[in-house]
Design a protein around this nucleic acid. Sequence first.
DNA 1: TACAAATCGTTGCAACTGCAACTATATTAA
DNA 2: TTAATATAGTTGCAGTTGCAACGATTTGTA
Lengths: 149, 149
Amino acid sequence: MPVKLSKAHNLAWRKFLIAQVTLIEQIERDLAQAELPPLSWYDVLFTLSEAAEHKLRLYELAQAVLLSRSNVTRLVDRLEVAGLIQREQCPSDRRGAFAVITDKGFKMLDRMWEVYGRGIEKYFACHLDANEVRFLVKILNKITNATDS
Amino acid sequence: MPVKLSKAHNLAWRKFLIAQVTLIEQIERDLAQAELPPLSWYDVLFTLSEAAEHKLRLYELAQAVLLSRSNVTRLVDRLEVAGLIQREQCPSDRRGAFAVITDKGFKMLDRMWEVYGRGIEKYFACHLDANEVRFLVKILNKITNATDS
DNA sequence: TACAAATCGTTGCAACTGCAACTATATTAA
DNA sequence: TTAATATAGTTGCAGTTGCAACGATTTGTA
């Protein structure tokens, strides 16, 4: 059977795609201009900063930042070279490794948030009043919860 | 001055990111499973199908699909090898080239829409009633129009 | 116990991306 | 007209991505 999709829904989807891409590109540009690493590094640092003992197994990190394990291996490589995180052997599973955020990593997290947070404000949050935020979150929850089955 | 961002706005931003990534990954998986090309190909084919005479200059295509020119050069290469589009010299500007969608390209566009459109329905549109769609589009318009300055 | 199956992190590979530099051509200004 | 500047498309390069395959280890099952 043919796809049946209202004009309005279709339009909403396109706007949704474009908004996302535009915003992220703008924020990445802001970060690059401030000579800071890309958003993916922020995601790792932030996720680790919130984790218990500031560390996570690599596969947990992969799930949290929505990347494949192979990707996380190399992302962790880069962050480790930069001194922002460290690998740590897992005592209970000799296959496993933790990623732990370092002091330098925390500092970088703060510096990046200066730019990133301001970007979220400037390009996203400032357009949404309290009502709109609630509504948007409600919608996004419905979508996400249904999809990540 | 420090970044000042409400919890709710912050949450909305994170949900926004996650929803997008999750949906696109799911749709890409559906396309791959049907042995169809990735979304970027669809964007090109769709954009050309809607253009006057079904063709666009490469730089116009780049703007439309939100990619850099270098990227479009190679994306057009791949689509041309697959026979879905063709390059055509521009008579009025000898530097320039058009990309034109072929009959085979139109057929591929239809086949991809079968999967893509159904994905938009399943993962996105079905969660939004008429009211919610209107609201979402309104919000996204505010965001996008302000950002692509 | 012992063996099959699953899981963790890594690596090789091919594909895709943006940036900067390049050529060819067009546009602008003197 | 001529020279300087800008633009269109391409290419080299380095970085990022996912997939499939791999070795090491753990878990499940008989």
